[in-house]
């Protein structure tokens, strides 16, 4: 899932200076799971902003509302009645949600309250780790289920570089070298041949905005025949 982290309160406060009414919008999707922007975090932020804004000039009217997912129009529509009552919006969704919200209400300034960090896993309670950079051309089948694009600090495809020592990446003793891990796993599976051949230069798939239209829906959006 997408993982995000709530911004510092001061930054959020500074972003909305000058607006008298603010609606804080939460998202019940990924950011809710990683405790950054779900209903509970919205309630929390509403309270904190109200308290900290008492002594300050603005904003006076702070509301909160959480929808199931901000990356879907069907759920965003639940905000249609509420949004006109406010001057500006704070979104606690990931970057995609923030933008879709802003697109739906183009006359309202929208401010993000979280930093979208990565696609990752729940390592343990309250501990998230990146696993995927959405490169658009998955190589995990070759590399033993360990992503060199994400897990190698240099994103090397023919790794390891000259840096790893005692199994750690040259960047930090606390980060395992992705290629040592790949090597160990493939060796254990008897698949070392996978990394003895040269991995050719990649045609990066994520250098322009991504867009997926399922084959079954092509005719619906482009007029193209199936």
């Amino acid at each position: 899932m997408v993982k995000a982290e709530i911004k510092q309160l001061q930054e959020i406060k500074t972003s909305v200076i000058g607006y008298s009414s603010i609606l804080i919008t939460g998202c019940g999707g990924c950011v809710s799971v990683c405790l950054a922007g779900g209903q509970k975090e919205v309630e929390n932020l509403v309270t904190k902003l109200r308290l900290s804004c008492k002594a300050d000039t603005a904003p006076k009217n702070i509301g909160g509302m959480t929808v199931e997912r901000q990356c879907e129009a069907q759920f965003l529509s639940q905000l249609d009645q509420e949004v006109p009552k406010y001057e500006a919006l704070i979104s606690m969704a990931c970057g995609a949600g923030v933008q879709y919200l802003a697109e739906r209400f183009p006359d309202k300034p929208v401010f993000p309250a979280v930093n979208t960090a990565f696609i990752g896993i729940n390592k343990d309670l309250g501990w998230y780790e990146e696993r995927c950079q959405a490169c658009g051309d998955c190589v995990l089948g070759i590399t033993g289920g360990i992503c060199p694009v994400t897990m190698c600090a240099k994103g090397l495809l023919n790794g390891p570089c000259g840096g790893p020592q005692n199994g750690s990446c040259e960047v930090s003793k606390d980060i395992p070298c992705a290629w040592v891990t790949i090597y160990d796993r493939l060796k254990a599976q008897g698949r070392l041949n996978n990394i003895l051949d040269i991995f050719a230069v990649r045609e990066w798939q994520n250098q322009t905005q991504g867009s997926i239209v399922l084959d079954a829906y092509k005719s619906r959006y482009t007029g193209e025949k199936k």
């Binding site: 023919n158 390891p160 570089c161 000259g162 020592q165 199994g167 070298c177 090597y183 003895l196 040269i198």
Partner: peptide, 19 residues
């Protein structure tokens, strides 16, 4: 090209050279 005979994993180093 460069080669590091001392980096991990040691057994892979000569294969990296071969690549």
């Amino acid at each position: 090209a460069a080669a590091n005979p001392f980096g991990d994993p040691l057994e892979f180093r000569v294969h990296r050279l071969a690549k």
